Amino acid sequence: MDKKELRKQIRNRKRQFTADELNELSVPVMNRLLGMHEVINAKTILLYYSLPDEVNTHETVELLARQGKTVLLPKVIDGENMEIRIYESPEDLTEGSYGIMEPNGKLFTDYGMIDTAVIPGMSFDADNNRLGRGKGYYDRFLKNIPQAYKIGVCFDFQKEQNIPHDEYDIKMDTVI
């Protein structure tokens, strides 16, 4: 199966769940994330502010910021790139395209300081390969933070034994 077909299959699986069910399924995933020493010990952590069909990170983003960690969120800036913004409070979010909440905090460029990166994906496999949404934003950005411990996050029903990947795809260190 090619990447395009697998993305379609995963989208169809996601549609079988209501928003409330996806939020409920998100709780154990976020609890596992919060228990990881790479998150507990991180001073600077890159997260994502979840879309409605992704593992819900909204409370986790807020919690880690309240704990005093430097929380970073990505913002797509053009057809190929994203930038990283500091999240300190809900005021650092504004509604962007398609009603998606986007970070508008201070620009963060000291990529060497990022300890841990929590990365969403359409699918992950047993070898920690990641299938994204197809635009390559994360794969291009992750090359800038080789030192960061990369944690792939998805629902169990998104995991596959093997997914198609190539030399441009960045592997995760672990997937939860």
Rank of each mutant, 00 (worst) to 15 (best):
L6Q: 04
Q9N: 13
I10V: 14
I10F: 00
N12Q: 15
R13E: 13
R13H: 07
R15Q: 14
F17P: 03
L25Y: 05
S26H: 03
V27H: 12
V27E: 14
P28V: 06
P28A: 08
N31M: 12
L34C: 11
H37A: 12
E38F: 06
E38M: 08
E38S: 08
I40W: 01
I40A: 07
L46C: 02
L46G: 03
S50V: 09
L51M: 15
V55T: 04
N56R: 00
H58N: 10
L63A: 14
A65Q: 01
R66M: 10
G68L: 08
G68N: 08
K69Q: 03
K69P: 00
T70S: 00
V71D: 03
V71G: 00
P74R: 05
V76D: 09
V76R: 09
V76S: 11
V76Q: 08
V76A: 12
V76N: 09
I77R: 10
I77L: 11
D78W: 12
Y87N: 04
P90Y: 08
T94G: 10
G99E: 14
M101G: 10
E102R: 08
E102C: 09
P103R: 02
N104M: 14
N104D: 14
T109G: 14
Y111I: 01
G112W: 05
D115E: 07
D115W: 02
T116D: 04
T116C: 11
A117H: 02
I119T: 02
S123D: 06
F124M: 10
A126E: 15
N128R: 12
N129R: 13
N129P: 05
R133K: 14
Y138W: 10
D139K: 06
F141S: 09
A148K: 04
Y149W: 01
C154K: 03
K159F: 01
K159T: 11
E160I: 07
Q161W: 00
H165G: 00
H165Q: 11
I170N: 06
D173C: 07
